[in-house]
Amino acid sequence: MKKPAFSLVIIILFVSFFFASCKIESYNEKKPIIIKGSDTMVNLTQKWAEVYMNKNPNVSIQVTGGGSGNGIVSLFNGTATIANISRELKDKEIQKAIEYNVSPYKIKAALDGIAIIIHPSNKIDSLTIENIRDIYTGRITNWQEIGGRNSKIILYGRENSSGTYEYFKETVLGKDEQGKPFDFISRTQVLQGTASLAEAVSKDKNGIGYGGVGYFALRNDLKILAVKKSKEEKAISPIKNKSINYDVIWSGEYSLSRFLYCYTNGKPEGELKNYIDFISSESGQNIVKQMEYIPLPKKDRKQE
């Protein structure tokens, strides 16, 4: 009775030791580059990693999302080599870096534009930043007030941990006279991810939402609004003939676009530098275009 159980234990021990030793060996052979951070950048980074690993089979790159905030923390505590961040570091975070003895080094990776979307049946074509702010802070509640049909505005937004949420809150909602940031009105519906937001707005005649330009540009069941900096200025749409209008985004004429960054601990060296150079090279930026993001302006690209 006892014997088979005993030998089973021995076998399990051997097998587990075997696997454990395998793991350690492979770990030494390939030092993986671990990338964590912004959910908006995950797809793009995965594609970069895939192409780069095909070219350099001895390098392994692991990509996970989890949000910009998560990426920064991972870079600080050493569980990530690169942090993908869809905004610049906050003062609080720079202070924390000193605490952790990490010196964050910023690299421009690509751009991302936020588009304001509504249902295609809505008559409105453009809004000022102020209009959008008033809508999301609850001072405008009916489409009629800004020249639309007489019905309530239904607000869609993102969860408060997403980079898009923070970017929108900072640039669109902004601050009042005393420097206090405005809050989203609490009836804003919170959706998980750009895809479900697009789905919701495409089915809601009175809905409005926001998210990455690249994702919305291809969809026919959504209308992308042109945005005015102020009432007097020209309305600028991030879209021209069903494709992204790069010029207005690079020049900053379109107000709702942002740079996406990779942060490393100190200036990148060796294998890490090769990878970073690949990102900002012409072929790396072609991938950006393929993935519906916005490539860096020519002057920021690396010559091959």
Binding site: G66, G67, G69, N70, V73, E159, N160, S161, V190
Partner: peptide, 8 residues
Amino acid sequence: AAELGEVS
């Protein structure tokens, strides 16, 4: 579920 994943 929506917030604990990323809160510092």
